[in-house]
Design a protein around this nucleic acid. Sequence first.
RNA 1: UGGGGAGUCGCCAAGUGGUAAGGCACUGGGUUUUGAUCCCAGCAUUCGUAGGUUCGAUCCCUACCUCCCCAGCCA
Length: 553
Amino acid sequence: MSHASNFIRNIVEEDNRINRWGGRVETRFPPEPNGYLHIGHAKSICLNFGLAHDYKGICHLRFDDTNPEKETQEYVDSILDSVKWLGFDWGEHLHYSSDYFDKLYEFSEYLINQGKAYVDSLTIEEIREQRGTLTKVGHNSPYRERSVTENLDLFRRMKLGEFADGRHVLRAKISMASPNINLRDPVIYRIRRNHHHRTGDKWCIYPMYDYTHCISDALENITHSICTLEFEDHRPLYDWILTQLKTLVSCHPQQIEFARLKLTYTVMSKRILLELVENKLVAGWDDPRMPTLVGLRRRGYTPESIRMFAERIGVSKADSWIDMGVLEDCLRENLNVRAQRRIAVLRPLKLIIDNYPDSLEEECFAPNHPQKPEWGRRILPLSKTIYIEREDFMEEPVKGYYRLAPGAEVRLRYAYIVKCVNVVKNSSGKIKEIHCTYDPDTKSGTSGAKIRKVKGNIHWLSSKYAQKGEIRLYDRLFSHPHPESRDYTAHLNPHSKKTISAFIESSLKKAQPEEYFQFERNGYFVIDRKDTKPGRPVFNRAVTLKDSWGKRK
RNA sequence: UGGGGAGUCGCCAAGUGGUAAGGCACUGGGUUUUGAUCCCAGCAUUCGUAGGUUCGAUCCCUACCUCCCCAGCCA
């Protein structure tokens, strides 16, 4: 696949040209295991792994696990699984920031010795007050000038667990007057007695992100440390720390920031995603309406479609909104070429062919893919009574409608042309069944089929052979393009999930989890990987087909 | 209003002193037993605004406007 150029690729190519890294390209995807990966992470994964792949480099998967309060093994496992599912391989390069806790500790003693870090004993509130504001400089802590000996003693005792949580912190000694708040003596270690999913209870002090991330990158010999825009003004701190440590770690990666993905009609915030799950507004992290990778997977998204999406939206520093339609379209594009075609009647309406012999049954042949004859065809049995889609009949057709209507003719796909001769209603006026006559000379595949052309072409299933199947019709979770900017619960789409019992081809009963199909004229569906039981498939609608008629209405 | 960023077609996004790529969407037309797919064509005299430099500016300079991020012992 060829790639559009973007500013990060330009940087990499320039670096290679001037031999900045000896031709190495080493990136990393650094998730915090405190939630499930979502489509926004997919953009970053594709970027980092894609870059490494294209420039014959390496991409690490590194868990940024420095806050045990929120991180769990469950999240680690799901992240591993999702990255793999997306199609990327980290090989030997699976790392955890917690792997570096010893080094990180050692480096901070070094900083103390260099007079570049000190133990502060202010309370959290006091630190906040002394930090100043966006427009006012901060003030030095009274503990800022403690001696190296005292700092070392205190810091070692912090590590040994002699102090209560929050009693002291280790701070980098930079400048309380910096216009960049991140440089106003940032906290780099805090005391926190939490069980860590990997290091257990070994530590009661944990390093902060800014301190940990740059060092982890350096220790792993990362060349290009790619992150999102909000870390732009953390870059001076990233560089400051590595500069102080240059005699201990020689690698100094370049941090590059890009705009995170924003998608309409959904939310990307971890907080809201968590709330949706915890408040049972969705069925779980893998609810097919969730923008999580596990959710998209259940919905029917393929890894290819997501990678195509990442490629299509590009990478830049301009924060922008991508329309959900772009994602949906990538899925259509991928499923169109890979999904076998089948028939399902979602909202059945009984149709009786009056002049079709009671005992007659005929085989009709339907190709498994209209553009791939090599995929073969299957038999669709036709009988006197069939089901068609309620939508394919209108008693009083509107202008431009060319499906069935009283007196109108339409082709039963892969079978005959029929003409509607009667409409039968029940006592309450609802249409119960419709009656047609067929033209025996028009069977698909015979020479007679070419004689008469009709514009309408509708799908159907023999009432005798059609099977019942559970189909879940999913739609966008939110009805507002920007649900996050307001009370998102007020904009949940009440029609985002509808479970129906539909008629399906009998062969579909044997379909396996994660098999994809196009139900002709209805959309793309996947067999649910969770709720499907042998012989009892559950279908999830991944996305509808494009519908220029529906759009016109 | 301190600091850091961004503004190129409806939505993304290349280009960066030589006269605006591409994708998606959209609009026509063709093919088609999916109102699908596919194909073909059209779609920014203009690059946030105003000045300036230049033979020539989206690109350089100046000023301005708009939007985003930052005051966690979160990442």
